[in-house]
Design a protein around this nucleic acid. Structure first.
Length: 223
DNA sequence: CACCAGGCAAGTA
DNA sequence: TACTTGCATGGT
């Protein structure tokens, strides 16, 4: 009696990925011309629509502030005013400064050098920075530093719990482990997967009501 | 008008 | 450990 019981079965997680991939195709996620721009976006998009983040990043560019040295030097109130469209602007201005200080200290502002660090150790350091929580840390690791990490967000939790794969009050780390153990450690696929989950979540898995007949996953019931 | 967005930190019990 | 609250703008 071997314990091979479900060896042929495709794990639900991969199945979800395939369905989403075939419905939405390649989303080419996280627009950003440089790794640093991705880091900035990761901070600015906290609990904020990406369309608002774009305005803030454009404003930073226009003012020559999309680099570490300039952000460190800029007056907090002016930095906040420039990123205002992204919401929580006073807080995020401070967070940008914390991140820049960290980057200077950790790698002299050279993100290519940061990439060489071991993922687990780096994640721990990122989490020590005020303003960087688990999702922001993982977004930076995956999208800016190209580390094979699965990023969990509110949609991910909602989708997996409504499909009965995790319990709805699972912690960040629990959700991440669940998926990581059932999915490829591949940067491109992980990038796509998070993007796909957000995309399908935006369309069919809102907070209050979830139903939409057109959802490719088909199972996003009303609660 | 209500509700939401690619969260996090700090405070309280 | 497990809640609660403040942070803020722009879109539907």
């Amino acid at each position: 009696m071997k314990k091979r019981k479900r060896s042929k079965k495709i794990p639900e997680v991969r199945k979800i990925y395939r369905i989403l991939e075939s419905s939405f195709g390649d989303l080419g996620w996280w627009p950003g011309e440089t790794a640093f721009e991705v880091v900035v976006g990761a901070i600015l998009t906290q609990n904020t629509a990406w369309s608002n983040v774009e305005k803030a990043i454009e404003a930073l560019k226009k003012n020559g502030l999309l680099n570490i040295a300039a952000i460190k030097k800029e007056r907090p109130s002016r930095l906040a005013r420039i990123i205002r469209p992204s919401g929580y602007h006073r807080m995020k201005a401070a967070r940008l400064k914390y991140v820049c200080r960290f980057l200077s200290k950790e790698c002299g502002g050279k993100l290519a050098r940061l990439k060489k660090q071991e993922t687990g150790a780096l994640r721990k350091k990122l989490l020590e920075v005020n303003g960087i929580g688990p999702e922001t840390a993982d977004s930076i690791l995956l999208y800016a530093l190209e580390k094979p990490v699965f990023v969990v967000d509110a949609y991910t939790k909602r989708i997996f719990s409504r499909h009965g794969l995790i319990c709805e009050n699972a912690s960040y780390d629990e959700v991440q482990s669940f998926v990581s153990e059932r999915f490829d450690k591949d940067v491109r696929a992980l990038n796509q997967f998070h993007a796909l989950l957000v995309e399908v979540g935006k369309r069919f898995c809102k907070k209050k009501r979830g139903l939409c007949g057109e959802c490719p996953l088909g199972v996003l019931l009303e609660r």
